[in-house]
Write a protein that binds this DNA or RNA. Structure first.
Lengths: 242, 242
DNA sequence: CGACACCTTGAAGAGGTTCAAGAAATGTGG
DNA sequence: CCACATTTCTTGAACCTCTTCAAGGTGTCG
């Protein structure tokens, strides 16, 4: 078990504005500090939770990078998302009291464990938290709508372009570069998420390199022409620069 | 405007067990009756809400059949779901206070309008409602995971089979036949939902008919071999009967 | 340094799309 | 209530995108 008990508090966490409501009174902040039971470290390659596990808590990612994936008995496999610092995982477990997907750390990670009964309890008292929880769930629904659009109507190049833009945008919101990123996942995992085979992902990267849109060195990727990617996603004629 | 003001109550609604928590005390039930502000009729082909509309309420479908769809400026279009009696729509609007998809009635419909601020208010007092709202949102997230699996990893026949089974299962839960159904949507709308072209949907139906798995007469559909559909979805060798 | 996982690239093939034409159903107005 | 316009559905043929299969290269970790 990769569990550690450390007394922690949201009130002095530098990620608070990413995963918690802002503008709280001191009084409410104090209550919020009862939210996180413990922190838990998750080694790269190990699971935070598994399909079938009893649902008890939501997890706020402090550091590291996760994927969530469905694996069916008949061998189908689908990555349903990639999650990074400040994002919440575990929402799938609420409806049936057990998880319906796996959450796997793609690099050494640490999460804040938030027992869900405690979330519900504090939500009843702190309106801002109640609203926040609703927004987090709604955001996930909207995100998945976007993935459905991608999977249902985009060609391979468009999917990869949308994927890269989304990733770099989220990283930028966390203070990283707008143009450089390190892919924490394999081509196969990208492919699974995008409904493509790993070879197609690889070929698409190569094509983007040929066209001068990105530089790729293994998992290190630099975007040279954001606008070109944007145009692909927006179904528009190419544009020399942006 | 297709709006009508009728004083209504959940406590004597025959759909209550579909859209509301069960096993409430009389006291809680009374509070719940403040949830639905009005009912609203939506004519076939008209929108309950549009992308960009201010978000105010969730809607519980009383009668009729809806689709939700994304339409992007560049002409992409994606049906994100089909909804029937007892199901809740509008969850996409919570996160940004405006809707991010269209909800369109595929047949004359009636919905219960539940102002979201009222939902949040009553949720703070009636724990069962709080839990219920969380479960509804989580259920939607899990449903979308399933759609991602479908769009990301299934072939056309498998998608259509999964679609039919899902539809008939939900209808059956509402007291309709396990084998007969009327499709309220066009082939194009089915295709959009499944990430296929309408011709592919039509061809797949024809193939199922040839194989004796279903009967199709326009939008009237009868499933003759549920097991065959199940086997397709489960990636298994065909089975003569079930 | 060797084993293993991951990535790239090529060639052939399959599944789904596109384009096109016609049939069937539905709705509308006279 | 019927004729006509419109929408929806089916089917065929050619095409294209992505997949499959295969081989070799690169990077990483014990």
């Amino acid at each position: 078990m990769n569990k550690q008990s450390i007394k922690v508090a949201c009130s002095n966490c530098n990620l608070r504005e990413l995963c918690m409501p802002v503008g709280l009174s001191d009084h409410d902040l104090t209550k919020l500090d009862e939210l996180v039971a413990t922190r838990r470290k998750v080694k790269r390659g190990t699971n935070l939770f598994n399909n079938g596990d009893k649902f008890t808590s939501l997890y706020a990612i402090r550091t590291g990078f996760f994927k969530t994936a469905l694996a069916t008995e008949d061998g189908r496999d689908q990555v349903t998302g990639f999650q990074m610092a400040g994002e919440i995982i575990g929402l799938d477990g609420i409806v049936n009291d057990h998880h319906t997907c796996d959450a796997i750390a793609l690099e050494d990670a640490e999460v804040c464990v938030m027992p869900f009964d405690r979330i519900e309890e504090i939500s009843r008292e702190v309106t801002a938290l109640q609203t926040h929880v609703h927004k987090i769930m709604s955001r996930e629904i909207v995100r998945e709508h976007g993935v459905m659009l991608l999977l249902g109507s985009m060609r391979a190049e468009e999917r990869v372009a949308a994927f890269l833009l989304n990733l770099v945008q989220r990283l930028h919101a966390r203070g990283f570069s707008q143009s450089e990123l390190v892919l924490r996942m394999t081509r196969e995992e990208i492919g699974s998420y995008l409904g493509l085979k790993l070879e197609t992902v690889s070929r698409t990267f190569s094509k983007f390199v040929e066209e001068g849109i990105v530089e790729v060195k293994q998992r290190h990727l630099r975007i040279l022409n954001t606008q070109a990617l944007q145009n692909l996603v927006n179904n528009q004629a190419s544009c020399s620069n942006g």
